[in-house]
């Protein structure tokens, strides 16, 4: 066996990475461009895993809903930066983890800092509303909103909150003077 020091270090990292994934019960992780094909592949993969594990139809439907909206959020809203900035351009990280009581769907993508305020106020508004309030907000947005050029209806976050019945957990980490990494976790109870 060739003992390349760099390679050995890398393989150790991969093993640590694997153990970390197991410890956090991550069943799916992806970093890169989110396309429609990726969305279809991930939802179908997760769907067949849930069927195998005899998850209820209700839980399967909710996980499917949340995954689609999260993936489409990245594909429609992740900001594209300079092409050579391969770390951030129009891409994102997508994770699904499964715990005893719940599924967590987490996304992370780079956004322009000037969007932080708008996203924060929308998420805070959603988190402050009860079931009825969310329903009204959804109906109003559906009536008054317009589909954006990329086909976004501005309904994704509201829909996730309604389908899961849980607060949306989010965070921003600065990546440069003008951009931040936006993280969002949605939780779907397995005992619906």
């Amino acid at each position: 066996m060739t003992r390349d020091k760099n390679l050995t270090g890398f393989l150790e990292f991969v093993y640590e990475f694997y153990k970390t994934m197991k410890a956090h019960e991550i069943t799916l992780v992806y970093e890169g461009e989110i396309t429609h094909q990726i969305t279809k592949a991930f939802t179908s993969l997760t769907g067949s895993n849930m069927s195998k594990e005899m998850e209820s139809d209700n839980v399967q439907r909710k996980v499917f809903h949340v995954m689609v909206e999260c993936l489409q959020n990245i594909s429609k809203h992740a900001d594209t930066f300079a092409k050579n900035d391969f770390l951030y351009s129009g891409r994102g990280i997508f994770l699904v983890s499964k715990a005893k009581e719940e599924y967590n769907v987490t996304t992370g993508n780079v956004i322009d800092n000037n969007k932080i305020e708008e996203i924060t106020s929308l998420l805070e508004q959603i988190n402050s509303l009860n079931k009825e309030g969310l329903k009204e907000l959804y109906k109003n947005q559906m009536k008054e909103g317009r589909l954006s050029e990329k086909g976004g209806a501005g309904l994704g976050f509201i829909d996730i909150a309604r389908k899961t019945g849980k607060k949306l957990i989010y965070d921003f980490h600065p990546v440069s003077e003008t951009a931040s990494f936006f993280l969002l976790t949605s939780t779907i109870s397995r005992t619906l």
Binding site: R61, M142, L147, G151, A153, L155, G156
Partner: peptide, 12 residues
């Protein structure tokens, strides 16, 4: 059996 939020707008 399923529609996403973008479709919900078009259904309206």
């Amino acid at each position: 059996t399923y529609f996403n939020t973008a479709s919900s707008k078009v259904l309206l």
